[in-house]
């Protein structure tokens, strides 16, 4: 372990990590330099949003660890008031799959496209097991009449681990600024 990762062997949750904006300019993680780690994290995020935007949702659960994982879309309003209720809250891989099956086979909703824009990808802490990463997102929604609106803006708080040589989310918390949903939310963000 590098001196920096030793110093940072924190077990803090994503929320705590969000507070501690550390200048992580130099570290090594699993033999990757800081720059390479940053690049790999950005690749992961890019592939993740492409999966959703291209409507390849059957593969969406694959971005998460198999054994234990957690995916949550929660409003900033609820978070700031210390309230746990979420818009979507999956505590197992099975629940992730159930969301997609439901979307494909049960739910009725107007056709629309999502377009994610991600920026400010910031590795906030590093320890032997995981990376805590915060990034901003915007989801543009285009309805089939051609009109595009901002559907959701917020941030990702991610806990990323290396699983069989691949980066996976063991936890993804989507904190939504846009806390008043436009009509409905069916697909993951």
């Amino acid at each position: 372990m590098s001196p920096v990762s030793e110093a940072l062997s924190s077990t803090s949750t994503t929320d705590k990590a969000a507070k501690a904006l550390l200048p992580l300019d130099d570290f090594t993680w699993n033999s990757w330099s800081a720059m390479e780690t940053q690049w790999r994290v950005e690749r992961l995020l890019s592939r993740y949003v492409a999966c959703i935007d291209e409507d390849d949702l059957e593969n969406w659960p694959e971005f998460f660890t198999l054994d234990t994982c957690r995916y949550e879309i929660i409003t900033r309003e609820n978070v700031e008031r210390g309230m746990p209720l979420a818009l979507m809250f999956c505590t197992s891989r099975g629940m992730l799959v159930d969301r997609i099956v439901s979307l494909r086979e049960a739910n009725i909703y107007p056709q629309r496209w999502y377009r994610h824009i991600i920026s400010n990808v910031l590795i906030q802490s590093v320890d032997a097991e995981c990376l805590q990463v915060q990034s901003n997102y915007v989801v543009l929604q285009t309805r089939r009449n051609g009109q595009t609106d901002i559907f959701s803006a917020g941030k990702y708080l991610d806990r990323i681990v290396l699983s069989k040589g691949e980066l996976k989310f063991s936890e993804k918390r989507v904190v939504v600024d846009t806390h008043r949903v436009d009509t409905l939310l069916v697909a993951p963000i």
């Binding site: 809250f89 439901s102 049960a106 909703y109 009509t183």
Partner: peptide
């Protein structure tokens, strides 16, 4: 919390159709 965050309402997997129908 888990049931409330997943089943009913405008994001609920068993009844979000309501929202589509209102419109």
């Amino acid at each position: 919390i888990r049931q409330s965050s997943n089943l009913l309402g405008p994001c609920g997997m068993v009844s979000m159709e309501d929202a589509a129908v209102f419109q």
